[in-house]
Design a protein around this nucleic acid. Sequence first.
DNA 1: AACAATCATATTGTCGACAATTAGACAATT
DNA 2: AATTGTCTAATTGTCGACAATATGATTGTT
Lengths: 218, 218
Amino acid sequence: MNNNLSKFSLKHRIAHEIRKLIFDGKLEQGEKITESQVSQDLGVSRTSVREAMLLLELEGLLISSPYKDTRVATISQEEVLELLIPMRVHIETFALKKGFSIWGEGTKEQFKNILENMKKVVNFEDLSTFIELDIQFHELIVTSSEMDNVIRIWESIVHRIRLHFLYQNRKSGTLQKWLVDHEKLINIFVYGKSVDEAVEALRKHIVETNIPDVYLLE
Amino acid sequence: MNNNLSKFSLKHRIAHEIRKLIFDGKLEQGEKITESQVSQDLGVSRTSVREAMLLLELEGLLISSPYKDTRVATISQEEVLELLIPMRVHIETFALKKGFSIWGEGTKEQFKNILENMKKVVNFEDLSTFIELDIQFHELIVTSSEMDNVIRIWESIVHRIRLHFLYQNRKSGTLQKWLVDHEKLINIFVYGKSVDEAVEALRKHIVETNIPDVYLLE
DNA sequence: AACAATCATATTGTCGACAATTAGACAATT
DNA sequence: AATTGTCTAATTGTCGACAATATGATTGTT
């Protein structure tokens, strides 16, 4: 736990560490995770780990029942495609509607920065980092709406979607396409004038990047 | 904390108690709530109260920032009407689609039981109890889908909607109308054959009971 | 061998104590 | 008078220890 640039409380930093283990594949679906082990590994007390794991449970990343062991969640494709992604679309378009007109130059710069960073990593086919940037991008949409609470709800579903996405291990070569997609979107956000156009573009972006073609045909 | 018919862990029972305080108006919007006070009042340790309050924070019922005091959330009508209720509609209709065809007699009995209980309290104009039954009704829709996780997401938004609803202090005399509404709905659930019909009826029910007429006109 | 009762171990649940941080009262400085 | 610094009280954050529970191994009985 060298991560003491604390701005977040310990439980949040621990939760972040565990999330990273899961997203990096160090912890697999259904694998057991115990409080004391994490506690030892990170050199913090079990109480803090408990609170972190409670957070993760409510994000749907961990599953636990009283006195039984805690495990990394398994993801149901049905749930992700039919429930979580539509909810995510609703949350992010809501945030965009509220935020679009109040964005200052600072926010627009942040969008452009994320895009620049994406361009930097696209050639390395570093999916993990790219996904991290994608999350940053969507998180910015949510937080810049300045609607408190929305970020909380967003977090309660987005990590599960991300996990589903990772387990799909997509074929390589799609990063370039994905980058172009983000570039178009950010241009509409930064230079566009119409909220409705931005909202529609975002909706399309989320659906197309998350739902496999085969599923859309049904 | 006489509530030791434990089937739920202590933190869940404590969270339930605090929720009750809020829904019964004993704790008002923006009012401060401290861990040690609750801990003393209920005769449990602060650790358990902390975990309970973390749950409530993630349900949007409490607000806290590091080392600062914790307070009962204030509710934004905009958020409830434009974000939470549409999300709720999506969650419950999803659950209904998944559950409708697998419901056994037991589930149908439970729906009928809830309706009977509603009939018993309708004449007392006991809004609080009626809302409790309404929650039970909708919770049954969600849990009987047998999709794990859905209940978790549902809980992360429904309590906030309920709070908004309570603060509206509606005029009396509406309970009878509300009962009839539930009766129709449950009949469609129990005796109806078409999922689509049930889904559409549920959607209509949620929107109509939660969104004031004035808002719909816009 | 099959089955049930008992026990051991691993893990989570709960607790009280101490540490860190904040906000407000009060004092010192300009 | 306004500002700045210092103390104090209230509150949240973190910790290690002990209690309760579930699971699987072991033993005993048929």
